[in-house]
């Protein structure tokens, strides 16, 4: 049966430790000042009723990805198993996919001049290992798996929890599911003041 990889993040378990961020950079040799997954942080409310909220964001591996639609050389590909990848030998570095991605999850490698992105740690998947961010999460807030497999963690996560996705209005059908998502943080954009 065809695989359909997806990622789920339980924000009720996330403690904002940025481990996924660091591990991803080490695992994939992500260049300096760019990230493939990072944790947005915010402070909600006012003292004494105050708490910190976290939102790890990464490529959503959309069902209907804008980056694949706009790539002029078909270097961005939606694989059969649902993973969106960039062919490093074909990409011309025009950055149109970066401009078109509603989630802003792509970056340019300044040394290679090509666009790179999260590929769910494809080299680890081939060895039957989970992506680095999933394997390293200390509270097991990130779950990963095949949505078509009824016994997978992600299937259980999506069916048992009240899940939602980011920017549903784009019509891209993102495949990163969040439980306990606080849209007051998701709607805050740009750099903190």
């Amino acid at each position: 049966m065809k695989k359909r990889y997806a990622i789920g993040i339980d924000l009720r378990k996330c403690i904002g430790c940025h481990t996924c961020e660091m591990v991803c950079k080490l695992e994939n040799k992500v260049p300096i000042s760019v990230w493939r997954i990072w944790v947005k942080e915010g402070i909600k409310g006012k003292y004494p009723l105050v708490r910190k909220v976290f939102l790890p964001v990464l490529c959503n591996h959309c069902e209907n990805p804008t980056c694949v639609t706009v790539c002029p050389v078909k270097a961005s590909i939606k694989r059969e198993d649902g993973i969106v990848i960039v062919d490093p030998h074909r990409c011309i570095g025009c950055r149109y996919c970066m401009a078109a991605c509603p989630y802003g999850m792509r970056h340019v490698n300044p040394l290679l001049g090509i666009v790179q992105k999260c590929d769910f740690c494809l080299h680890r998947l081939e060895n039957n290992e989970e992506p680095a961010c999933v394997a390293s999460c200390p509270t097991k807030a990130i779950v990963f798996g095949d949505l078509n497999d009824k016994n997978s963690n992600i299937y259980k996560f999506v069916t048992e929890n009240n899940v939602t996705v980011l920017k549903e209005s784009t019509g891209n059908h993102p495949q990163a599911y969040y439980a306990g998502l606080d849209f007051s943080l998701a709607d805050k954009k740009g750099m903190p003041e």
């Binding site: 915010g42 401009a99 340019v108 954009k189 740009g190 750099m191």
Partner: peptide, 16 residues
């Protein structure tokens, strides 16, 4: 509810 953003990463320039 009012949420203040305290950490985010800068975006790269796309079409310059």
């Amino acid at each position: 509810m009012d949420t203040t953003l305290t950490y985010n990463v800068p975006m790269q320039e796309t079409f310059g």
